[in-house]
């Protein structure tokens, strides 16, 4: 679906942000891109729908070279949720806001109605369709923005810190929606600072450091390398840390959830009542 070949990007002020990025993303993947602030995550994301064109190398999306394709055309294939919903909201009703993108990609009128409703339902906005988005809370506005992307029903969905500024429950709700979309076959690429959420939801993790790919692999294996992550200024969730420490003591547990850890620990304790750990 997405193929990056030695992608480099230098901003016009000479800021060389991406350096030789290469990877392939297949249909139906769920990827989290992590890295410290300024490592180039947003810059990379903006390449997926041609908002930024690689200054070196090549980026192919659905076989289209992003350098030769307009963002407004790529919008049919790639949905992009920005960090700040206020950068896009301009309509006087939530309905119109969600419908904006659909009108842009010239969807038929009866389809618009149906797709807006579907997107609104997914994000719990049905009762707010007639409200003015500006009167809503930040969390609700974020969901309106998300719904307007969902309505486009693109195969690829790109999310830049979708849970930033949301409380725990809201974050989980958003992420569950994202997971549901992924289970329906959509390719998800998201940037997040929340290692817990990345570990919990993503299947593959790409770690960026200073504009290069530092790690790229299955979530379990990336999270199981705290030392490498630390050199990128990241720390895996505590459960991975605990598992890692146990492994260091020769207890080869590779567990990623609290429940698993508890069960294995219990079994271990029952099996060796008289042995003290460590």
């Amino acid at each position: 679906m997405i193929l990056a070949e030695n992608v480099c990007y230098t901003y016009r002020n000479g800021n060389n942000v991406l350096k030789n990025i290469s990877f392939e993303i297949k249909k139906g993947e769920f990827i989290a891109i992590i890295g410290s602030n300024g490592s180039g995550k947003t810059t990379l994301l903006k390449h997926f729908n041609g908002l930024l064109k690689p200054t070196g190398g090549k980026m192919l999306v659905n076989g289209m070279d992003t350098r030769k394709t307009k963002t407004s055309r790529l919008a049919k294939y790639v949905g992009f949720l920005f960090q700040n919903p206020d950068h896009q909201i301009f309509c006087s009703t939530v309905y119109d806001e969600i419908a904006f993108g659909l009108k842009n990609i010239s969807t038929r009128r009866e389809d618009i109605r149906q797709r807006v409703k579907k997107a609104a339902e997914k994000l719990g906005l049905e009762s707010l369709l007639d409200s003015n988005p500006l009167t809503l809370s930040k969390g609700q506005r974020q969901r309106v923005a998300f719904a307007s992307i969902l309505a486009l029903e693109t195969d690829i969905i790109v999310l830049d810190e979708p849970t930033k500024g949301q409380d725990y429950i809201e974050s989980i709700k958003i992420m569950d929606t994202v997971r549901e979309l992924n289970e329906q076959g959509k390719t998800i690429i998201m940037v997040t600072h929340d290692m817990e959420l990345a570990a919990l939801y993503a299947k593959r993790i790409i770690v960026l450091r200073n504009g290069t790919i530092h790690l790229d692999g299955r979530t379990e294996s990336v999270m199981a390398s705290p030392e490498i992550l630390a050199s990128s200024g990241l720390k895996p969730p505590q459960i991975y840390m605990l598992s890692y420490m146990f492994r260091k003591y020769g207890l080869f547990w590779n567990v990623h959830t609290v429940e698993d850890m508890f069960r294995q620990l219990l079994a271990h304790l029952e099996g060796s009542k008289n042995v003290s750990i460590g």
């Binding site: 992009f80 993108g101 486009l152």
Partner: peptide, 16 residues
């Protein structure tokens, strides 16, 4: 900067 952000957000929704 803000203008660029807005422009990009709308272009991502097919705005031409």
């Amino acid at each position: 900067d803000e203008m660029n952000q807005v422009m990009q957000a709308q272009m991502s929704r097919g705005y031409n």
